[in-house]
Design a protein around this nucleic acid. Structure first.
Lengths: 215, 215
DNA sequence: CGGCAATTTGACCGGTCTCAAAGTGTGTGG
DNA sequence: CCACACACTTTGAGACCGGTCAAATTGCCG
């Protein structure tokens, strides 16, 4: 999911409104609610999740600064997922009405929106592939690399970072149990692939992890 | 994935070109190829799949008459998935150029395209959820219901139909092995939930299957 | 009708899950 | 600033689902 281009935000000036920061766990929107706006992450991070009756829930994806929240609901008008802040997070809002009005005048704006939706679709399909065909170990290695790359795109270190999700959230996102995740992390550490202290992680052997991830 | 509305096709007259039917196994496009057009299924069915080096591949979704093929590539210009006919299938093509040109003049056309992409995204996320949180049995029950509903939307019987995919393809789509699928189908039959002869299937207890599917 | 692909069935194995319990952080209120 | 409570994380033991390998059976197309 590429960042929302800065020049684009520029052209939206006057239509985008910065909201006050929210804290970890606060909800941006819930599945079933009417969707009235698009949110753009300014600082912090967020996750979207789906849930089934019965309590089972899954974190479909996570979002970093520059990413757009609420795309799933853009054209239906109703949210199909729930979006929650992962840490203290600030977003800007763009109302659906302004967006619709602007879309007519700015072909490149709607290009960008569609492009982001496109990327979300491709990401989702690849995650499907991973969950269905890879082992837990491969998925975890892939995840560590994925986070690293996305942080890298935003100018942060790709080698050493703070995990944006808790163990519970990571396990859930990868379709495994926290116990399994914990064991795998311990294993990676034992093999010298990473160092780990709480949420702080160092990728000691990117190559090794990439190879493990299996593509 | 809703069907492409008939009145919309009407308005596209002169821009949409019917292609000659292709047979089962023929490829509409491959991952990596340049994307120059959108395809709309007229008769028959198709599937899209992703693959990793190493041969592992996954069928992400399947498409029935009225569905649109190639959405994943609409804005990047390069296909990220491979699309293959499931049976003798006829599609209509709409070139990307015409589409871009038309999009300016027809706000509702781009609404529709985005809406379809939206639906594809939501479907993909839900499939993620299913693969990650449901048992093989639940996924299979859910799949049988899903096919039934999609056929129903198109005016076919929801009770009795011909499976659009082979066992291998179904298993792959659901993230399990053909052996597992075969055993589960045998089980469903033994329990009186379905009858099955080759690809012809009857859902004897929709309710039971729905309950099994778990939501 | 022959041959090959698709499907089914069986036996066994292994990766993950489940249940349980012990550690480790972390935030809040006193 | 400390201490307590509670959430998060780790570790262990055992069970089970689904995968793997192998072989028999069925079905389909030339």
């Amino acid at each position: 999911m590429a960042a929302f281009p800065a020049d684009d935000l520029e052209s939206l000036k006057g239509h985008v409104r910065a909201l006050r920061p929210v804290r970890r766990g606060d909800t941006f929107y819930r599945a079933g609610e009417a969707a009235s706006r698009l949110l753009i992450v300014h600082a912090g991070s967020a996750r979207i999740s789906l849930s089934r009756q019965g309590g089972r829930e899954m974190i479909c994806d996570y979002y970093l600064p520059g990413d757009t929240l609420g795309l799933e609901a853009l054209h239906t008008g109703t949210h199909t997922a729930t979006c929650v802040a992962l840490e203290t997070t600030q977003v800007c809002e763009l109302s659906r009405n302004s967006l619709m009005r602007l879309a007519g005048r700015h072909p490149d704006l709607r290009e960008r929106i569609c492009l982001q939706m496109n990327r979300a679709l491709v990401r989702s399909q690849h995650h499907q592939l991973d969950i269905a065909t890879k082992s837990s170990e491969q998925r975890l290695a892939g995840f560590l690399i994925d986070v690293s790359m996305r942080l890298g795109e935003r100018g942060y270190s790709t080698h050493s970072y703070r995990l944006p999700l808790t163990r519970l959230e990571i396990a859930n996102h990868l379709g495994m149990r926290t116990e399994t995740l914990s064991r795998l992390l311990a294993d990676f550490r034992r093999r010298g692939l990473i160092t780990l202290a709480g949420r702080e992680i160092d990728l000691l052997q990117r190559e090794g992890l990439s190879r493990l991830a299996g593509d």
